[in-house]
Amino acid sequence: MAAAAAAGAGPEMVRGQVFDVGPRYTNLSYIGEGAYGMVCSAYDNVNKVRVAIKKISPFEHQTYCQRTLREIKILLRFRHENIIGINDIIRAPTIEQMKDVYIVQDLMETDLYKLLKTQHLSNDHICYFLYQILRGLKYIHSANVLHRDLKPSNLLLNTTCDLKICDFGLARVADPDHDHTGFLTEYVATRWYRAPEIMLNSKGYTKSIDIWSVGCILAEMLSNRPIFPGKHYLDQLNHILGILGSPSQEDLNCIINLKARNYLLSLPHKNKVPWNRLFPNADSKALDLLDKMLTFNPHKRIEVEQALAHPYLEQYYDPSDEPIAEAPFKFDMELDDLPKEKLKELIFEETARFQPGYRS
């Protein structure tokens, strides 16, 4: 834990890192770190609560700039109880001085990944967590956004079992017609939660990839272990087919990539493993919904509104309290091709509203 900075004593240090967030945020305490930044909790002297502050230093890398800009653009436009918001952003007053960006968010005690390492969940908890994931996802999908990296560590939890989806750095506007060349190379989302079509096709992607990830998360809540822990690309596919069985001819016809289709045709026939054999203690309604989410063919996979209306979630289902976005989200430009200098300018502009004396 960093010592509390005395008023006016300059930035606090946390594990050798400068955290320049005073005077409003003090009493910093280390939480963890990701690929390009550290997260601390801090005391907000204005709202009198502890908050989470993520320090991001992305400006050396085009990919990190892209992810940072995506996350900020999306989260500043989203407003939903099951999606983490941005409360404040701290950065230098000029673009030349801006080396880091500090993002202030609600402090959540833990995440689903940490929880599943230590606790076996009751059916009631599984049901409530799944409902909140789908409630947040309904809003995301209504904005025409794909999260693309749903996994237990991106689901934040607090002691009252509130759940918030975080990390929109890989999110995209849904565009089933656009052929994202190089899709697989830039697709760094965790393999275990990846839909089979991501490994088999490169053309376009749809909201059904997020539903697949939610199915993987439900299976993990039922058993405290990942359902498809593939060691590499082909191993991942083999794990999936080992449980779902061989795809039907109709399902194979959806695979545009001939090499991928021929690979699947070359494999020995596998039978589907019954879900109640894998999860003998699970609620039968939970397994019915799991089956509809972990469907090989993305066109037959359940959609988020149908999933919310499934009998497993009937005690929570309330369409009048499951809000959607006001308007579909649009990125003005494809960020993939922009140089990091341009992305830095866009991050600077996007964060201006939090600067003292800002006038829109």
Score class of each variant (00 low, 15 high):
residue 105 Q to W: 15
residue 300 K to F: 09
residue 175 D to S: 06
residue 326 E to F: 02
residue 52 A to I: 12
residue 158 N to I: 15
residue 63 T to E: 13
residue 257 N to R: 07
residue 270 K to L: 11
residue 193 Y to T: 01
residue 129 F to H: 04
residue 158 N to R: 10
residue 219 A to K: 11
residue 9 A to H: 10
residue 75 L to D: 11
residue 265 L to A: 04
residue 297 N to Y: 15
residue 3 A to M: 07
residue 335 L to H: 13
residue 60 E to Y: 12
residue 119 Q to Y: 07
residue 302 I to G: 04
residue 107 L to M: 11
residue 149 D to Q: 03
residue 267 L to R: 00
residue 184 L to D: 11
residue 14 V to H: 11
residue 328 P to G: 08
residue 35 A to W: 01
residue 51 V to L: 11
residue 63 T to G: 12
residue 245 G to W: 01
residue 30 Y to D: 07
residue 325 A to T: 12
residue 340 K to P: 06
residue 5 A to D: 12
residue 106 D to P: 01
residue 350 E to P: 06
residue 230 G to Q: 00
residue 313 L to M: 15
residue 140 I to D: 02
residue 348 F to V: 12
residue 141 H to E: 09
residue 61 H to P: 13
residue 316 Y to L: 06
residue 78 F to K: 04
residue 222 L to N: 11
residue 75 L to N: 03
residue 163 L to F: 01
residue 337 D to T: 06
residue 304 V to I: 13
residue 172 R to I: 07
residue 23 P to Q: 02
residue 167 D to Q: 08
residue 58 P to E: 13
residue 148 R to A: 03
residue 275 W to H: 04
residue 91 R to M: 02
residue 73 K to H: 06
residue 47 N to I: 14
residue 165 I to N: 15
residue 354 F to L: 11
residue 15 R to T: 11
residue 26 T to P: 13
residue 150 L to H: 05
residue 263 Y to H: 00
residue 54 K to H: 00
residue 30 Y to P: 05
residue 360 S to Y: 14
residue 191 R to C: 05
residue 316 Y to F: 15
residue 182 G to F: 08
residue 226 P to M: 01
residue 92 A to G: 00
residue 269 H to D: 11
residue 336 D to N: 13
residue 124 D to P: 11
residue 187 Y to K: 03
residue 172 R to T: 00
residue 74 I to N: 15
residue 293 M to R: 09
residue 304 V to R: 08
residue 46 V to Y: 07
residue 242 G to S: 10
residue 130 L to W: 03
residue 60 E to C: 05
residue 47 N to S: 13
residue 338 L to D: 05
residue 262 N to S: 00
residue 196 P to C: 04
residue 247 P to M: 02
residue 195 A to W: 05
residue 18 V to T: 01
residue 319 P to F: 05
residue 271 N to F: 08
residue 46 V to K: 14
residue 172 R to W: 03
residue 291 D to S: 04
residue 144 N to V: 11
residue 315 Q to D: 09
residue 200 L to M: 13
residue 132 Q to G: 07
residue 360 S to H: 11
residue 115 L to Y: 00
residue 285 K to Q: 12
residue 282 A to T: 13
residue 21 V to L: 12
residue 92 A to C: 04
residue 3 A to D: 13
residue 285 K to G: 10
residue 144 N to S: 00
residue 22 G to T: 02
residue 159 T to S: 15
residue 182 G to A: 09
residue 46 V to A: 08
residue 53 I to E: 08
residue 159 T to M: 08
residue 215 G to A: 10
residue 285 K to Y: 09
residue 353 R to F: 07
residue 86 I to Y: 09
residue 304 V to H: 07
residue 67 R to V: 14
residue 80 H to E: 03
residue 199 M to A: 10
residue 155 L to S: 06
residue 37 G to S: 15
residue 346 L to M: 14
residue 134 L to S: 09
residue 351 T to I: 09
residue 235 D to P: 04
residue 280 P to T: 15
residue 243 I to P: 05
residue 17 Q to V: 10
residue 79 R to V: 11
residue 328 P to H: 13
residue 346 L to T: 05
residue 96 E to W: 04
residue 321 D to E: 13
residue 130 L to P: 09
residue 66 Q to K: 15
residue 57 S to P: 15
residue 301 R to P: 04
residue 38 M to C: 13
residue 221 M to S: 05
residue 195 A to M: 01
residue 220 E to A: 12
residue 273 V to W: 02
residue 98 M to N: 02
residue 5 A to S: 13
residue 62 Q to C: 11
residue 322 E to W: 04
residue 352 A to T: 13
residue 325 A to H: 01
residue 323 P to F: 01
residue 324 I to E: 04
residue 48 K to A: 14
residue 174 A to M: 10
residue 238 N to I: 15
residue 261 R to G: 09
residue 157 L to G: 03
residue 310 H to R: 00
residue 82 N to P: 02
residue 117 K to V: 08
residue 236 Q to R: 00
residue 95 I to T: 01
residue 31 I to V: 03
residue 287 L to G: 03
residue 158 N to T: 11
residue 98 M to I: 15
residue 167 D to K: 01
residue 10 G to C: 12
residue 354 F to M: 10
residue 292 K to H: 06
residue 313 L to G: 03
residue 242 G to Q: 10
residue 206 T to Q: 09
residue 225 R to L: 14
residue 256 I to T: 02
residue 274 P to L: 09
residue 91 R to L: 14
residue 132 Q to A: 08
residue 99 K to A: 11
residue 301 R to G: 00
residue 164 K to N: 15
residue 329 F to C: 04
residue 99 K to L: 03
residue 260 A to G: 09
residue 179 D to C: 10
residue 215 G to L: 07
residue 331 F to A: 01
residue 153 S to K: 05
residue 198 I to Q: 04
residue 211 I to W: 07
residue 6 A to R: 09
residue 36 Y to S: 15
residue 179 D to A: 14
residue 250 E to C: 11
residue 130 L to Q: 14
residue 66 Q to D: 10
residue 169 G to D: 15
residue 3 A to G: 00
residue 145 V to I: 05
residue 108 M to D: 09
residue 325 A to V: 09
residue 290 L to F: 03
residue 216 C to L: 10
residue 351 T to Q: 04
residue 158 N to G: 10
residue 68 T to M: 15
residue 79 R to E: 06
residue 87 N to F: 05
residue 322 E to G: 00
residue 135 R to D: 01
residue 37 G to K: 15
residue 234 L to G: 06
residue 320 S to E: 10
residue 264 L to V: 06
residue 343 L to K: 09
residue 70 R to F: 02
residue 260 A to Q: 05
residue 193 Y to M: 04
residue 139 Y to T: 07
residue 227 I to C: 08
residue 114 K to A: 05
residue 311 P to S: 11
residue 33 E to I: 02
residue 35 A to Q: 13
residue 123 N to K: 15
residue 249 Q to T: 10
residue 316 Y to H: 00
residue 23 P to E: 02
residue 341 E to Q: 11
residue 259 K to D: 01
residue 38 M to I: 15
residue 214 V to I: 08
residue 124 D to F: 04
residue 83 I to P: 01
residue 331 F to V: 12
residue 209 I to H: 10
residue 50 R to Y: 11
residue 125 H to L: 14
residue 80 H to Y: 12
